[in-house]
Computed example of a mutant assay.
Amino acid sequence: MLLVLAITVASFSTLKTKNVNIKESQITWTGHKVTGQHDGTLTLKDGALEFNNKQLIGGEFTMDMTSINTTDLEGKSKAKLDGHLKSDDFFGTEKYPTATLKFTEVKGQGTDYTVTGDLTVKGITKPITFNMTVAEGSAKAAFKIDRTKYGIKYGSASFFDDLQDKAIYNEFDLNVALKF
């Protein structure tokens, strides 16, 4: 009887994976320091969201860390910061060209979800939890990432003394707008 019920329920469920449209999706970041902030973009290499009927149940993404781009600077200043962000002081993109996020738990229904996932940056995987809104072929999330958890300690007052106005805050903002 239980097997018949499980088969009946499964036949009414529609599991579907929806690939993210990389060209129409956008990831922006903001890094904060004592004297201000810098803004930029990051490109998705690939990504997909998983649904059961219309309910979000999973997802997996790969970010192209070599695409890190500063948008608030121009010329030599921009080139210098972009190069520094790609260096081993920050994301070490030569050795770690991608970062990944794999959802491990999704709670919620309708359009509002709380997502927990494993974020891997520079070969280090840590859990992260954030809110995500999903509606009509798009998904949005905004969250903070503590870079020091991924071995990125450059300019952190938590690890270096006497940085004064050269200190860079440990957390940076990531804003994600996905189209699928």
Rank of each mutant, 00 (worst) to 15 (best):
A10P: 06
K18I: 14
F12R: 06
K80R: 11
I7Q: 05
F130P: 10
T125S: 15
K122S: 08
L2Y: 03
K80F: 13
D89A: 10
L3K: 07
M65E: 03
T8H: 02
G110P: 07
F130L: 12
L15W: 09
V115N: 02
A139N: 07
K78V: 01
V34K: 08
K153R: 13
K140G: 07
F103L: 15
Q26T: 12
A157V: 02
G110L: 00
K95C: 04
Y150L: 02
I168Q: 11
W29Q: 05
K18M: 12
F160R: 05
E105K: 15
G36K: 04
Y154A: 04
K16A: 15
T111C: 01
K140W: 00
F103K: 03
P127L: 00
L2I: 06
I145G: 06
G123L: 08
D165A: 15
L3T: 05
D46S: 10
L119K: 03
G137S: 07
K23D: 14
F172S: 08
D173Y: 08
G40L: 12
T114L: 02
T114F: 00
L101C: 11
Q37M: 04
V115K: 04
S25C: 09
Q55N: 13
K16E: 15
N19T: 13
I68E: 03
D173Q: 12
N19E: 13
H84S: 05
D112C: 03
L178K: 07
K80P: 02
T100L: 01
G31V: 09
F160C: 06
L42K: 01
R147Y: 01
